[in-house]
Amino acid sequence: MFITNIEAVPGKRITQHLGMVQGNTVRAKHAGRDIMAGLKNIFGGELKGYTELLTEAREEATARMVQQAQAIGANAVINVRYSTSSISAGAAELFAYGTAVVLE
């Protein structure tokens, strides 16, 4: 499966547009990560626990998007975008979406 954030694939021809595909995951904060994040907010620095959480969430949302694209016969997803939103206190959604296509 070819995945890109641009609208076309150089050197390839799009033979079919199959429509939008998407994948998402909702993740909650871990109590240990929250405590460390609170300390980092005081002293400064990267919130590595949250960075790892978002990386895992992005990978899962992308995998779900790819599964949906494969199910409809795509061999590529173009114009991929990511979005995050707060669902509730301590929980956030990561949403991946793009256009499923067939490349020649």
Rank of each mutant, 00 (worst) to 15 (best):
residue 89 A to N: 12
residue 52 E to Y: 15
residue 61 A to L: 03
residue 93 E to Y: 07
residue 46 E to R: 14
residue 15 T to I: 15
residue 28 A to L: 08
residue 9 V to L: 11
residue 24 N to I: 04
residue 89 A to H: 11
residue 30 H to K: 14
residue 30 H to W: 12
residue 66 V to D: 08
residue 45 G to V: 02
residue 73 G to N: 13
residue 64 R to F: 04
residue 78 I to G: 11
residue 57 A to Y: 00
residue 91 A to G: 06
residue 47 L to Y: 11
residue 29 K to Q: 15
residue 2 F to E: 03
residue 15 T to V: 14
residue 7 E to F: 10
residue 65 M to E: 03
residue 83 S to P: 02
residue 23 G to C: 14
residue 89 A to W: 09
residue 84 T to C: 10
residue 54 L to K: 07
residue 25 T to W: 00
residue 104 E to D: 12
residue 4 T to G: 15
residue 59 E to I: 12
residue 74 A to H: 02
residue 77 V to N: 05
residue 78 I to H: 05
residue 2 F to P: 03
residue 56 E to P: 04
residue 35 I to F: 13
residue 87 I to M: 04
residue 72 I to R: 02
residue 62 T to M: 11
residue 104 E to N: 09
residue 83 S to A: 12
residue 53 L to A: 13
residue 44 G to Q: 01
residue 12 K to N: 10
residue 24 N to V: 00
residue 13 R to T: 14
residue 51 T to G: 13
residue 40 K to P: 06
residue 69 A to N: 05
residue 86 S to R: 15
residue 71 A to K: 01
residue 40 K to F: 12
residue 78 I to Q: 02
residue 25 T to M: 03
residue 38 G to T: 14
residue 3 I to D: 00
residue 94 L to V: 09
residue 41 N to F: 11
residue 7 E to N: 11
residue 9 V to D: 04
residue 55 T to S: 12
residue 16 Q to I: 01
residue 85 S to Y: 13
residue 104 E to F: 06
residue 94 L to P: 01
residue 62 T to D: 05
residue 15 T to C: 02
residue 33 R to H: 12
residue 75 N to H: 03
residue 39 L to R: 14
residue 13 R to V: 13
residue 38 G to N: 09
residue 13 R to E: 07
residue 70 Q to M: 07
residue 103 L to T: 06
residue 35 I to A: 12
residue 99 T to G: 07
residue 73 G to E: 09
residue 79 N to Y: 05
residue 24 N to G: 06
residue 12 K to T: 03
residue 64 R to W: 07
residue 56 E to C: 13
residue 32 G to E: 13
residue 73 G to Y: 10
residue 103 L to H: 02
residue 37 A to M: 09
residue 55 T to V: 15
residue 13 R to I: 06
residue 28 A to D: 06
residue 95 F to P: 08
residue 1 M to P: 08
residue 8 A to Y: 04
residue 84 T to D: 00
residue 76 A to M: 02
residue 19 G to Q: 00
residue 83 S to Q: 03
residue 76 A to N: 08
residue 69 A to I: 05
residue 96 A to F: 01
residue 45 G to C: 02
residue 2 F to H: 04
residue 72 I to Q: 02
residue 19 G to D: 00
residue 58 R to K: 09
residue 32 G to R: 08
residue 26 V to F: 05
residue 46 E to S: 13
residue 90 G to L: 05
residue 97 Y to S: 12
residue 15 T to N: 07
residue 22 Q to M: 12
residue 64 R to M: 05
residue 81 R to G: 10
residue 13 R to H: 03
residue 83 S to D: 12
residue 15 T to A: 09
residue 62 T to A: 11
residue 19 G to Y: 03
residue 20 M to R: 08
residue 83 S to H: 03
residue 52 E to A: 10
residue 9 V to S: 07
residue 72 I to T: 04
residue 57 A to V: 05
residue 100 A to G: 00
residue 40 K to H: 14
residue 57 A to M: 01
residue 3 I to H: 01
residue 40 K to R: 13
residue 42 I to G: 06
residue 43 F to M: 07
residue 63 A to Q: 12
residue 86 S to L: 10
residue 91 A to T: 06
residue 25 T to Q: 01
residue 85 S to C: 06
residue 71 A to Q: 08
residue 96 A to P: 03
residue 55 T to I: 08
residue 24 N to S: 13
residue 45 G to Q: 07
residue 1 M to K: 00
